[in-house]
Design a protein around this nucleic acid. Sequence first.
DNA 1: CGCTTAACGGAACTGGAGACCCGTTTTGAA
DNA 2: TTCAAAACGGGTCTCCAGTTCCGTTAAGCG
Lengths: 205, 205
Amino acid sequence: MEVSPGHVRPGGRTARVREAVLAAAGDALAEQGFDHLDLADIARRAQVGKTTVYRRWGSITNLVADLLADMAEQSLPRTETGSLLGDLQANARLVQRTLSDQRQGRLFTAVIAAATCDPRTAEALRHFYETRIDEWAPCVQAAIERGELPADTDCREVIRAVSAPLYYRLLTVGHAPDEADADQAAEAAIAAARAGAYVKSWQQS
Amino acid sequence: MEVSPGHVRPGGRTARVREAVLAAAGDALAEQGFDHLDLADIARRAQVGKTTVYRRWGSITNLVADLLADMAEQSLPRTETGSLLGDLQANARLVQRTLSDQRQGRLFTAVIAAATCDPRTAEALRHFYETRIDEWAPCVQAAIERGELPADTDCREVIRAVSAPLYYRLLTVGHAPDEADADQAAEAAIAAARAGAYVKSWQQS
DNA sequence: CGCTTAACGGAACTGGAGACCCGTTTTGAA
DNA sequence: TTCAAAACGGGTCTCCAGTTCCGTTAAGCG
């Protein structure tokens, strides 16, 4: 992305431009969708010359990848309820609310679409989700220590199991999940985890 | 899609062209990805004038939607093993093999990307998955009748629960699931279903 | 076996997104 | 405060995917 020949200038204007362009890219992605993305349009929204966007990011693809990297930074802290069901429900509802939100939902589908078209973006998306999972996995670990789940349960897999049906709904069923879907996802993940479906090192047939 | 003023001619050449173009579109989608799709390229692959593609489908978007409709027709029959675990494992592995296949996997991600960008394509994709679920739901119904699952279990939801983690892996983790993932998905779906996570009419908090 | 016309294909046209040039503004260090 | 160069921005050009024109092929009916 940023080339640094000799001297870089991250101060003042540069940072302001980056912020404005990323915000504009997010808006454009949410409103227009991944295709229909237009360099000139993004520049107009950011009140920035389109040459600037072209020079700094080179392509729409790189811009989306950078946007994802930026999104990964802003990791919202998880809520601690003390019970596994409460924690996973909180997680499920957070995902559900995000995907149901007009802007955020469209943004996420657009970003996923972008990731399927470019390896760098795919890597950025992967990193984004790994970051989110890092944030929530500890609540599963705590449940293991309380004896609520098998000792060798794969914490990260449980968190993925909560998100999976919600994203599946959004992408293949076509519309965002509702609150009941979120609760169902949390319940199902716990039931499967209790039954040992997510224990590590599963070499069986 | 097809306009029919006065008289249509579905025979011979027309059918051959449609078949060739849909096949070419599938290849192009799998190789180039959803963006980078080129009308002229598809026409070249199908050994057909690009004017023809343009006139018959109007846009890439409609072509992909039509491809999906065509894919929904070719529903492969499910394998009956007699046990719920066997059936769901068969389903999970079928999905897993499909997504792991070089061509098919890329095709599916591309198609999903296309669906996020256009309502008609999204509807076609939804119909495709509904068709697949129709095919497999009966094996869950049979399990209910054998008393293996709660009576008011949502059969279709169980099938979705099998696919969800596999697609989630492909789209957000970035690479296709393996056979162990497939078995895990089947196990998890059964465990959750047994625990009553997929019973219908879940109006609780 | 013709004849009408739906459907196809080659080739030329066109609009707009991306690439670029060059003058202007901002940065940051001396 | 000064100044070299890093970064920005307006305007222009280029290239090619999508579109259209019109002559050609073949489907299907009498």
